[in-house]
Amino acid sequence: MPPRSTAQKRLLKEYQQLARDPPPGIVAGPVSEDDLFTWECLLEGPTDTPYENGIFPAELKFPQDYPLSPPSLKFDPPLLHPNIYADGSVCISILHAPGEDPNQYERPEERWSPVQSIEKILLSVMSMLAEPNPESGANIDACKLWRDDREEYNRQIRAHVRKTLGL
């Protein structure tokens, strides 16, 4: 076996931990044994939200210097949400390294640090689905819809959920 980098060792360990003790509603793992830097995840929509019953696939991409730098997370297909860009990329503080803050809203302690974990990221994303943060919006249309016409917002998401489930 070739010598593994810190990033690979850590990713493997995190994968083992997630597989052993998966948090509810989350399935995640590397796409293949050969490439530990790309993960596939399935996130369950939180209950009592329009996302309920939905299963949302997303891709985690890790940089070579992980865990010094955070991974990026992208929903595929994109999801309508104030904190998800139109291309599906997720914008939350835990995925931003301290120092870079595109929207100037985040406290350093909420940001990425090497002691965070994939599990914490995915849990944060779950709670983001339940409680959008319109202050640091990534998708302005979604922000407006969420703020001004919650019913239409909910309806569009439920339609999306039904479509993805093939109903």
Binding site: T6, L68, E109, S113, P114, V115
Partner: peptide
């Protein structure tokens, strides 16, 4: 690894502990 990346790549002399939220 952390210190090297801060000093060599980011060119910083003032950087915090790696622990979450530690300043």
């Amino acid at each position: 690894m952390y210190i090297q990346s801060k000093i060599v790549e980011d060119g910083q002399t003032l950087f915090c502990c790696m622990e979450q939220g530690c300043r």
